[in-house]
Simulated scan of single mutants.
Amino acid sequence: MPKPGAAAQTATPALRKWIVEQADAGFAPDVVLASMLASGWDEAVAAATLHATMAAHQHQAPKPAAAPVPSPALDGSPLWLDAGDRQVAVLSVLRIPRLVVLGGLLSDEECDALVELARPRLSRSLTVETQSGGEEVHVDRTSDGMFFQRGENPLIQRIESRIAHLLQWPETHGEGLQVLQYQPGAEYKPHYDYFDPHEPGTPHILERGGQRVATLIIYLQSPELGGATLFPDVQLEVAPQRGNAVFFSYDRPHPCSQSLHGGAPVLAGEKWIATKWLRQHEFN
């Protein structure tokens, strides 16, 4: 990396070139920024240069074609959405990225039941290993979690049917519901949920149902402090309020979707969430 000079720091062509090289190599923006700070760059200069360079690079780079995505019925700016067996409140909507904050997706009783069913089956959360298409423990993700099989029991069946109705997407096109526990200090650093088309393990992953095209995060237990869901590209924080959810879609596996997101560290108490990933095709 080009080192900053002793005088007032300014972005140089060499620095911008280095940032693009790191992005093309697959390093997340927070990792690139941390490397710049460790090399002596002023935080304000580094952050501004990183943001401007990546915005220009993403605008110039060829983008994959857009795909159909799940979506609630938002025409007419409704206050409530029909989820089949339940009315769900619309609390906030963003158009770019495609994001909706939903109120009361699950009842308190459903949240408690999911936590209790998941608790004895928890283990350290894994991430996708992009070279092989397998899974691995990663320092960026420090929660514990488990997966329910699709349709595993009546509670899961009811929730999956509600999600499919709400998002107008077939139940068969969803992965199994994942439940995660975040204890104090646990977090998930900013990342994308889609599978990077440039990674060698991606073709193997896509055999099971195509790309991920949307994510639904449901809050099952609120921590006392911390644990917000962060969307760095749009400077948005979603509070982890029990029973509520945040839905966002990404019509192409590319940073232009602005679907970068993460889970802020829990500072006190425990956060429990359920995550549903939706695929292009039937997931098996």
Rank of each mutant, 00 (worst) to 15 (best):
L50Q: 04
S71H: 10
S39E: 15
V45P: 05
A66Y: 10
A38Y: 06
W41V: 00
T53E: 01
V69I: 14
W41H: 03
L81Y: 04
M36V: 06
Q58V: 15
A52L: 06
A47Y: 08
A46E: 02
A46M: 01
D82A: 05
T49A: 01
P70H: 02
A65D: 14
D75F: 09
D42S: 07
V69E: 06
Q58D: 15
L37D: 02
A47Q: 13
L50M: 04
A38H: 08
A46N: 04
A55S: 09
L37S: 05
P78K: 01
K63P: 12
A55R: 10
A66I: 10
A65G: 14
P70C: 05
H59A: 14
P64F: 07
S35T: 10
P62I: 09
L81V: 02
V69M: 08
Q60R: 09
M36N: 05
W80M: 13
A34I: 07
P62R: 08
W80S: 09
T49K: 01
P62T: 08
M54Y: 07
S39F: 08
A47W: 07
P78L: 00
M54Q: 11
A34H: 09
A65T: 13
A44F: 13
P70K: 02
A73L: 12
S39C: 13
S77T: 10
T53C: 03
V69G: 06
A48T: 12
Q60M: 08
L74F: 03
D82W: 07
L79N: 08
P72T: 04
A66W: 11
S77E: 11
G40V: 02
A65Q: 13
A73Q: 11
A52W: 02
T53D: 01
A47T: 14
A67E: 14
V45R: 06
A67P: 13
M36E: 06
K63S: 12
H57S: 05
L74K: 02
L37Y: 04
A52R: 07
P78M: 02
E43V: 11
A48K: 14
Q60G: 10
A56N: 13
S71T: 14
D82C: 03
L79R: 09
K63A: 13
A46W: 02
A46K: 00
D42K: 01
W41Y: 04
G76I: 00
H51P: 12
H57R: 02
A73D: 12
V45E: 05
A47H: 11
L74Y: 00
A67C: 14
T49F: 00
A44M: 13
A66T: 12
A34G: 15
G76A: 03
A55N: 09
D82Q: 05
P62W: 10
L50N: 05
A56Q: 15
H59C: 10
L37V: 04
Q58W: 15
V45D: 06
L50G: 00
A56D: 15
T49W: 01
A47L: 08
A56I: 05
H59M: 12
A38M: 06
P68C: 06
L37A: 02
A66D: 14
S77V: 04
E43G: 07
A48R: 14
A46P: 00
H51G: 13
P64V: 08
P68L: 04
L79M: 07
G40H: 04
L79A: 08
M36P: 00
S39L: 13
G40N: 01
